[in-house]
Amino acid sequence: MSDKITSIVGARPRGHGEAVARILSLAAAPTFAIMALIAAAAPADMLCAAMQGPLSLQGMVPMYALMSAFHLAPWLRLVR
């Protein structure tokens, strides 16, 4: 089990909690991206749809997209 976690996180962590934190940090960006896709595919409430334009920055989709972008740092460190 320890070797499997080490291969996922890259460097050998000091403790189990550190490995879990690193895995969770890698899970944040894809989770928010999936939530943005689900929110975009979900039918909008009629009242909310009437108040928003086609390129509006209001709503859940832009929020999840921004959260996904802000949580990309662990992925960029992993690639680098």
Rank of each mutant, 00 (worst) to 15 (best):
I8A: 12
L47W: 07
H16P: 04
I34Y: 11
L24T: 08
L66R: 08
P13Y: 02
F70I: 10
F32V: 02
A27N: 07
T6C: 07
L72F: 06
I5A: 12
L72E: 08
R14G: 14
D3W: 04
R22Y: 08
A11C: 06
P13V: 00
C48A: 15
R80C: 11
A40R: 08
L26C: 06
A27P: 01
A36Y: 00
A73Q: 09
P30G: 01
L37N: 13
R77V: 14
M35F: 11
M63W: 10
M1I: 08
I38D: 05
A19Q: 03
I38K: 02
G17N: 10
A42K: 11
P13K: 00
C48W: 07
D45G: 05
A27F: 07
A40G: 08
A73C: 01
S68G: 15
L66P: 00
G17L: 08
I8H: 04
M51N: 06
L72H: 01
Q58V: 09
L26F: 15
L47E: 15
T31G: 10
A69I: 14
A69N: 05
Y64N: 06
L57K: 11
A73T: 14
V61A: 02
I23H: 01
C48G: 07
A40T: 03
I34L: 15
A44S: 14
L66M: 12
L66S: 09
L72K: 02
E18C: 05
F70V: 12
H71L: 08
G17V: 02
A50S: 13
P74S: 04
D45E: 11
A40S: 08
S2W: 13
L26K: 01
Q58G: 08
A39S: 13
A11V: 10
C48F: 10
A69S: 10
K4M: 08
L37Q: 11
I38Q: 07
Y64D: 00
Q58M: 09
M67G: 09
A11G: 05
L47K: 12
A50D: 12
L57P: 00
V61W: 03
